[in-house]
């Protein structure tokens, strides 16, 4: 936590989304660390601690599911919220079984993301 702000790692390969979402989430009281790919995210997670991670499922390289599994292996307490542009009820349930706190479907309001992220931080 930095200055009372929750530390949020946002991973998405879309730069525009990353930029816009990061700005908004900053305003919603998060310290956002925007990252474009899974490898960088894992590297940053080794060095810094975060209160919540938000991942895009479909990414080049290490995808969101793989990243979720690796994070959960190393940091089982760290809540992870998944963002996906293509999923179904069952796939979402599957992701939650694999350790995701929640699975949100794109496009969803940033406020919704902020709300879920806050709930994740509070629960852990």
């Amino acid at each position: 936590m930095i200055d009372g702000k929750k530390r949020l790692l946002l991973v998405d390969d879309e730069v525009e989304f990353l930029d816009a979402a990061a700005k908004t989430l900053e305003r919603r009281g998060f310290f956002v660390c925007p990252v474009q790919d899974g490898e960088t995210a894992l590297m940053i997670l080794k060095r810094q601690s975060f209160d919540v991670v938000i991942l895009d499922v479909k990414m080049p390289g290490i995808d969101g599911i793989e990243l979720l599994l690796r994070i959960k292996k190393r940091l089982p307490q760290l809540p992870v919220v998944l963002l996906t542009g293509q999923s179904t009820n069952r796939q979402a349930s599957e992701m939650i079984r694999k350790g995701a706190f929640e699975c949100l479907c794109k496009p969803c309001a940033i406020d919704k993301i902020a709300e879920v992220a806050r709930a994740a931080v509070n629960r852990h």
Binding site: L83, Q86, P107, A109, I110
Partner: peptide, 24 residues
Amino acid sequence: AAGLAHEINKPLAIISAEQTNLWD
């Protein structure tokens, strides 16, 4: 349809985020 929806969802997510940004 699924491929198309996924491709449309990406820019929609950005528009949605930018629109929240604008609002803020």
